[in-house]
Amino acid sequence: MNGLGETLLDEVDETLRVRFVVNGRKVACEVAPRDTLVDCLRDKLELTGTHAGCEMGACGACLVQLDGQAVHSCLVFAVQADGARIDTIEGLSESGVIADLQAEFHRRNALQCGFCTPGMLVNAQELLSQLAQPNRDEIRDALSGNYCRCTGYEAIVDAIDAVAKERSKSRNAGGGAS
């Protein structure tokens, strides 16, 4: 018979215990070495707001913050993220850090099916943390790892543009946004 030998099967079966701080809470879970972070978040931790659209780093639907930086959770094995701080759309929503982006996306209807949206928001937040006043081309450029099949992108660009301006304004006025 072709296929996997016993030893290989045993290795596949093996699980490891990993710990993360997910959305501000300590969690531990058992993962197989081959489990990706996106599968771990979605299946084990039931954080289904993070989506998988390609599982190869092309579409951006799976973006999460790993130690504060936007990362494709389909390209990271769960074991590689051991010990990391992970923030998903659920945590970012609850903490309110992207509330302005969410409100602007809603107001301008910068989403249809919503499948790309969590990844878009994570990337938008990343962009605005690096570039306070991006122009439209810079926004389009920064989003080019996030596919959206529904919207045509323009409303998304408009929404991010509006939030960037709003955040700069409140920063200049000594407001608290960071």
Binding site: T48, G49, E90, Q102, H106, T117
Partner: peptide, 19 residues
């Protein structure tokens, strides 16, 4: 008027069959 049900999707609270 904005879509009332879009807020769920923006908060990562969509309920897709894949979930």
């Amino acid at each position: 008027v904005p879509r009332p049900n879009a807020k769920r999707l923006l908060a990562g609270r969509g309920r897709y069959i894949s979930d």
